[in-house]
Amino acid sequence: MPKILVIEDEVAIRRVLIKILTEENKEYEVDEAEDGLAGIEMIRKEDYDLVLCDIKMPKMDGVEVLEASAKVKPDAPFVMISGHGDLDTAVHTMKLGAYDYISKPPDLNRLLNTVRNALDKKELVSENKRLKKKVSKHFEMIGESEAISRIKEMIEKVAPTDARVLITGANGTGKELVAHWLHEKSDRSKAPMVEVNCAAIPSELIESELFGHVKGAFTSAVKDRAGKFETANKGTIFLDEIGDMSLSAQAKVLRALQENRISRVGSDKDIKVDVRVIAATNKDLKAEIEKGKFREDLYHRLAVIIINVPALNDRREDIPLLIEHFAEKVAGEQGVQQKRFSKVAIKLLQEYDWTGNIRELRNVVERLTILGGDEVSEGDVELFASK
């Protein structure tokens, strides 16, 4: 049931607004406040889906209420009520964050449309927040081992900074989870995190993918196109498997890191970018430097902070938690009941040689959820999880 607060010092106008709202929709729960001070106190105590607020009021005017509310309930949408002489102020309040304004005396259709639209926007914002929480859970780091605890502590320290991070570890260990946590816990979390799998992009296309191109730069360049660095502006770019990047692309990435500027393929125009770079690799980059396959100067630019993600074999104490996590996740994805794993089955899985790391464990849990009994037993593990 939508909760609406009407802050209006003129009793007659307040009564008209409440009457219009309650007659339009019986589900609207409408509270009232006779001035700005009373209104902000109610906002502090209650979560309102919408606030209708007069601009000119004694004790505390509408602009002051809007600014005070932004500090205690920043998500509460405001629709300002303006007299004839308050229109400039009403427009100013929209710059301060108000959703819209209506003029006195209130027009029935204008009022109701504005209220419906404001409530729809509030619902959309709430849904986006729920989705963001789901995304965060999707990239949750599971484990309480000493190795994972150290990584979590390091993320807490590093994430709020703009320090570049190089994440190392074998395939399937969860390097991308570390990258997502670094972004989500940073001040850049509201801006995009753009992922680039350097190993999946042909060497002749990697520069265009990273830096964009102008029309006519090459045969298939039929229009201007922004690259990943531009798309990630004000946010984070995650260069996964950077050890597979060509030397020519490495040179351009190095320039971008040194100067915070890039240029599109086929253009000599510089574009300023503000991007935090997180890179990951499953290769020994120092060995790649010795072979002449990776630039040493780029390595030192990227490796300000190094986070090594351990293999699953080195954190076997986390396997029971990971099994429970994946069992719940798989059940939701497959639309089946979550399977319990017997203690013997879990112990047996802890003894496996997980060459494919967490990615392999997740696949095995999915297989056992689909093919195993109501409780996954030792026999199920021996039958369906064998190498």
Rank of each mutant, 00 (worst) to 15 (best):
1 M>H: 12
2 P>T: 08
3 K>C: 05
10 E>F: 08
20 I>R: 14
22 T>F: 08
22 T>Y: 06
27 E>M: 09
31 D>Q: 11
37 L>T: 13
37 L>P: 05
50 L>T: 07
50 L>Q: 09
53 C>V: 07
60 M>D: 11
60 M>I: 13
73 K>W: 02
97 G>V: 10
111 L>C: 02
114 T>H: 04
122 K>I: 05
125 V>E: 10
137 K>P: 06
139 F>T: 13
141 M>I: 15
143 G>S: 06
146 E>V: 11
152 K>G: 00
153 E>P: 02
155 I>M: 00
155 I>A: 00
163 A>K: 11
166 L>R: 00
171 N>R: 05
186 S>P: 02
187 D>G: 14
194 V>H: 00
201 I>L: 06
203 S>M: 07
206 I>M: 14
206 I>D: 04
208 S>F: 03
215 K>R: 15
216 G>S: 06
243 G>H: 03
246 S>A: 15
246 S>F: 03
256 A>D: 06
271 I>N: 12
272 K>N: 12
276 R>K: 15
284 D>K: 06
292 G>A: 01
296 E>V: 04
300 H>W: 12
301 R>T: 04
318 D>Q: 12
321 L>E: 11
338 Q>T: 12
345 A>T: 05
356 G>Q: 09
365 V>Q: 05
374 D>N: 15
374 D>E: 15
382 E>Y: 07
383 L>R: 13
